[in-house]
């Protein structure tokens, strides 16, 4: 049996609800876009239902602690198709077993969720580290990113607490949305500007002092290096090349 859903978290949670209502045995869960009809298995279309999804999420929250709820959410944000199915199986597993079953690392679903969540948290941490704001002429600090996973929801609080006295924008160029902080609250935004311009802000749009601080930072980065200890392998292990395009000191 194949379950299709719309790819949202609510959709996935509704699928769990529908599965427990029907108990069709082993199923595979795919998004509508990735669904390919199969001559020998039937298909069931999951219609996203907010109240059913809420019931599943609440039930899950009563069985898992905050840590594990976050792991489940991170797995969803990974956007890896196989892991969405794993998340579905994990939630079913948690409901079918006694409390505490999520600690059974010998179980493949548990281990997959734990490991995927770790990858997402790592990407989130990298964004906290590698985002480089540029001050624009109107005083807003801007940075464009294209993270491997959809981590913006996870970094909102970090940046909101840290940069409370400046306006800033973080924009996901891959997923076409971003967040904007206006000194009070953080809002989700979408910008209809040329993508090339979002990637590299034009010099004329930047604050006068921006270039000076970028230069100072580049110089600092060079001076703090010890040439006798050169270790390129370790360097690229910590700062993989795909992130270099964000980094002022690497441009």
């Amino acid at each position: 049996m194949i379950y299709t859903y719309d790819g949202s978290l609510e959709g996935l949670l509704t699928a769990v609800f529908e599965w427990f209502e029907r108990k069709p045995g082993a199923i595979s869960l795919v998004t509508e876009e990735r669904y390919q009809p199969d001559a020998f298995t039937s298909c069931f279309e999951v219609l996203t239902n907010r109240s059913k999804a809420d019931r599943v999420w609440k039930g899950l929250a009563s069985r898992l602690d905050r840590d594990w709820m976050r792991k489940a959410y991170c797995t969803f944000l990974s956007e890896i198709p196989e892991m969405q199915q794993e998340l579905f199986l994990f939630i079913c597993y948690v409901f079918q077993h006694q409390a505490g079953a999520e600690k059974n690392y010998g179980n493949t679903h548990v281990l997959n969720i734990a490991q995927t969540a770790r990858k997402v948290e790592r990407e989130k941490h990298r964004m906290e580290a590698f985002i480089r704001f540029q001050q624009t002429a109107d005083g807003i600090f801007y940075c464009g990113i294209d993270p491997d996973f959809n981590v913006i929801p996870l970094i909102v609080n970090h940046f909101k607490n840290r940069y409370a006295d400046q306006q800033w924008v973080i924009y996901d160029l891959k997923r076409h949305y971003g967040i904007f902080y206006d000194l009070h609250t953080v809002e989700e935004i979408e910008m209809n500007v040329d993508l090339q311009q979002l990637k590299h802000a034009k010099q004329t749009l930047l604050d006068q002092k921006e270039q000076l601080y970028a230069d100072l930072w580049k110089n600092y980065f060079k001076s703090t290096n010890i040439v006798a200890r050169k270790n390129t392998k370790l360097h690229t292990q910590h700062v993989p090349k795909r992130y270099w395009k964000y980094l002022t000191e690497k441009l």
Partner: peptide, 29 residues
């Protein structure tokens, strides 16, 4: 913690913002 709506907020495990070419982390100026 950033309690006075100023700049900066501690991160309990620290953040390495970049790494020099010798592989050491750069988190502080």
């Amino acid at each position: 913690k950033n309690t006075n709506k100023g700049l900066g907020n501690g991160h309990h495990s620290g953040i390495c913002h970049t790494y020099t070419e010798d592989g050491r982390c750069v988190s502080l100026l």
